[in-house]
């Protein structure tokens, strides 16, 4: 998994590519937990994400909650159908902002 950050105006776009699994989730968790304290608008770009497992979902949920607490925004975008399916299956579509 690779994490690439870029600024898009107010928003910080985090491009996550590769696999977000048990092995790589802690890396993203560490990255995002720092970013939530600094940024008000985060965008997770999943255009190059192969798949996401429950460990990855936990990271996204905790990021979502942290952003909600500080009234920031978290957007997930460019999900492949397979990723979207996971979000649907787990009910994540209900509280995530997916573009």
């Amino acid at each position: 998994m690779e994490i690439t950050k870029s600024q898009e105006g107010e928003k910080l776009v985090v491009l996550v590519s590769g696999r977000l699994n048990t092995g790589t989730a802690p890396q993203l968790d560490a990255e995002l937990s720092t970013l939530v304290t600094q940024q008000d608008a985060l965008v997770l770009d999943f255009s190059d994400l192969a798949y996401i497992s429950s460990a990855g979902l936990r990271v996204i949920l905790s990021t979502q909650k942290a952003m909600s607490r500080k009234k920031g925004s978290l957007v997930v975008r460019n999900c492949k159908p397979e990723i979207l399916e996971v979000f649907e299956m787990t009910g994540f579509v209900d509280f995530l902002t997916i573009e």
Binding site: R19, T22, G23, Y51, I52, A55, P81, E82
Partner: peptide
Amino acid sequence: STRAMTQIDIALDELFSNIC
């Protein structure tokens, strides 16, 4: 299919991490 492969990858991740 890509979809099946993704799902299998996820399942493997879950089961393997459990064993680890």
